[in-house]
């Protein structure tokens, strides 16, 4: 029983890590500009047009393995996990040799630091863990239900020590870029915020259309330009900083009637 416990102890770690990898890779693909993908392994090893597909393929394989490990005890999934981890080790070594500037991409965009011995060590340890789990009894959910805490903790600590991503995340939290340099929320999200503001409610009746004719972002503000029934411009500026954004509004006369702003700042 004791040996079985040890063998199955790392299954939860593997399942959680594979799922995290899937989620992070899908997030990298969804948000990913081509520039981001061009710096992440294993996508950098394939030609430009296959990068998205390569990362997606990895994510699907990880999701499949995680699901397989969780619900069945079939040796196919166990051996496939060993093979996947061993192949990852080889790919990371290759990546380090061919593209020393690229990140491993194991957890998507967070793993953008160049591949080091720690990342490679981690895949070696994961291969070992996967190898150990091959002979474990029962499917993964059983290991979740009755975890052997001390071995599980030991595994997590070893992996945490070998994960440069934890430091990257800590650094990102510490040195958060100011809002001028951060990518803003999508235009539709900001528009929804605007529509729940007092300034919007005060001017909504005067607008000729509900959709802005122009919208742009400058520094920490997103601007929405509308026309009102008098053919004047109604401009809303929604601050992108903070949770409760400030909304300002101005009515600007048409270009021939020179005297400009009748503006008043309004807060939500």
């Amino acid at each position: 029983m004791g040996v079985t416990h040890v063998l199955a102890s790392q299954l939860p770690v593997l399942i959680v890590l594979l799922s995290l990898g899937t989620v992070a890779k899908i997030a990298a693909i969804r948000s990913g500009s081509p520039g981001t993908l061009a710096q992440l392994g294993p996508a950098v090893l394939v030609p430009d047009r296959f990068r998205r597909a390569a990362l997606l393929c990895c994510a699907v394989a990880e999701a499949g393995l995680a699901a397989g490990l969780l619900v069945t005890a079939h040796p196919l999934f166990r051996w496939a996990t060993v093979a996947f981890c061993a192949m990852s080790t080889y790919i990371l070594l290759e990546l380090r040799r061919r593209r020393p500037d690229a990140g491993c991409g194991c957890f998507g965009e967070v793993s953008s630091a160049p591949v080091g011995w720690r990342s490679i060590g981690r895949t070696v340890v994961l291969t070992g863990m996967a190898g150990m789990s091959v002979w474990a009894e029962g499917p993964g959910w059983l290991a979740f239900a009755h975890p052997s805490w001390e071995y599980l903790l030991a595994g997590v600590v070893v992996l945490a020590l070998l994960s440069p991503e934890i430091e990257t995340l800590a650094e990102r939290a510490r040195y958060r870029a100011p809002c001028e340099q951060r990518r803003g929320p999508a235009e539709s999200v900001t528009l929804t915020r605007l529509r729940s503001s007092e300034a919007w409610q005060a001017h909504e009746a005067h607008l000729s259309t509900a959709e802005p004719y122009d919208s742009w972002r400058e520094l920490c503000w997103r601007f929405f330009a509308f026309r009102n029934h008098d053919e004047h411009d109604v401009v809303f500026a929604v601050s992108l900083a903070g949770r409760r954004p400030t909304v300002r509004v101005a009515v600007v006369g048409s270009e021939d009637s020179k005297p400009l702003p009748v503006y008043k700042p309004v807060s939500v």
Partner: peptide, 22 residues
């Protein structure tokens, strides 16, 4: 989105933030 008048953006932004259009 098309840009109906990008020059006009400066005027509008200046008006709403209460600064002089440059």
């Amino acid at each position: 989105m098309s840009h109906p008048s990008v020059e006009h953006r400066r005027v509008l932004a200046a008006a709403v933030l209460g600064r002089e259009p440059a």
